[in-house]
């Protein structure tokens, strides 16, 4: 995903492309491309990112509208989860004979 969107005025906007690889799965970011509008972005994404049946559905998002967390905040942001192992089922010691749990 592109962080710096520094298009010159003459340049078409940048779009982020997300593809659902098959029915039932999430759309996943695959890359970006330039297009004049959303419709063209979808058509271009078809040619650029699905030449080998990589997808059954395409999302495009104008890159300007993607907001991201700041990597400098990563510690404060994600570390509080580190010491909360009790959120995982493996934290609990239960007898082996206990079934179906």
């Amino acid at each position: 995903m592109s962080d710096k969107v520094n298009n010159k005025p003459s340049e078409w906007p940048l779009w982020e492309v997300f593809i659902r690889s098959k029915a039932g799965l999430d759309h996943k970011h695959v890359g970006s491309l330039h297009a004049v509008d959303a419709q063209m972005a979808i058509e271009n994404a078809r040619d650029v990112y699905t030449r080998r049946m990589e997808g059954v559905s395409i999302w495009v998002v104008d890159s300007r509208f993607v907001h991201a967390s700041n990597p400098d905040d990563a510690e404060a942001f994600y570390e509080p989860a580190n010491d909360k192992v009790y959120r995982h089922p493996t934290f609990y010691n239960l007898p082996d004979e206990l079934k179906h749990m």
């Binding site: 995903m1 890359g31 970006s32 650029v48 990112y49």
Partner: peptide, 24 residues
Amino acid sequence: VQDEAGHGLYLYSAAETLGISRDE
């Protein structure tokens, strides 16, 4: 040849993440 066009496009957008524009 179509793949090569595609490869060029993947790479141009990778370079753009570093702050250079396509036109440049």
